[in-house]
Amino acid sequence: MAGGAATGGSVQSETYREARTWLLLPAWVTLGILTLAPLTIMLVYSFLTKEFRGGVIWEFSLAAYDQFFFDRGLFGDEPPRIEWTYIGIFWRSIWQAGAATVLSLLIGFPTAYFIAMRPQKERALWVFLVTIPYWVNLLIRTVSMKFLLRDEGPLNEGLMAIGLISEPLGIVNTNLAVQLGLFYSYLPFMVLPIYAAVERYNLALSEAAADLYAPRWTILRRIVLPSVRPGIVAGCILVFVPSLGSFLAPDLLGGAKTFMIGSLIEEQFKGNAGNWPFGAAASMILLTMVLILLILSARPSRKGVR
């Protein structure tokens, strides 16, 4: 909204004022049918009674949330204690997604900066190159990643051939493999927004700072980073949020030995448990967490726009 006003969007919208309702209708219908309706169903389901082997019984129940937060023992008749299982699964997922985001930022920022510093004519080519791997399906890319990281794969064999290591690193089926997989899956979502921000950055500011004897590190920290901050925030959100709910990388690269949020929810709908209200409740808790995160990250960037 604020961005629209800054670029003069409000003047343009006056032109079509008569037709505004009709022009917005497709957007509202799409949002209503494709976003609000499924979310409402999930919200309602999370407060219903579970039906054995999948499905819901239309009776109000807090059992799903109770199961999430309270542990009543293997047989369900002990006095309730705090349930750490699911909190642990959420925490692990946050940690994995966070590590993937940091990794993406460390690689993505220099990449984006590099592309933005190329001559105007070359930039489109570089951006194009970054997106090429993403024309291939995510599943194929994740499987290829596994082939690269395998004990008998090119990474380990290459490192052994040059004598850096004497036996395979054993990366597949570890948390590191999951983080690498997530990082690789979502890297362009980090590069592209940062690139867009750096491209708009006025290099004269860096030159001015250098003229005033600011060291390079200070220029980066005090001038460049604050200017491109909205791009960095957008990139981090775009990598973190899908990583959090991902189940392909954990299943294929992590060996599915431990649940992540995505696989826990999938199990409730597609697995033996068939506990739809619990799956819905876990989704709602995840949604709430992401929402809080977005609100927190949106606040400072609004201040930046002014």
Partner: peptide
């Protein structure tokens, strides 16, 4: 049956947590 199955579901969750 349902009561028995719920214990087995719990054992499976414990295994993968």
């Amino acid at each position: 049956d349902q009561a028995t199955q719920e214990v087995y579901d719990q054992i499976w969750t414990n295994l993968k947590k």
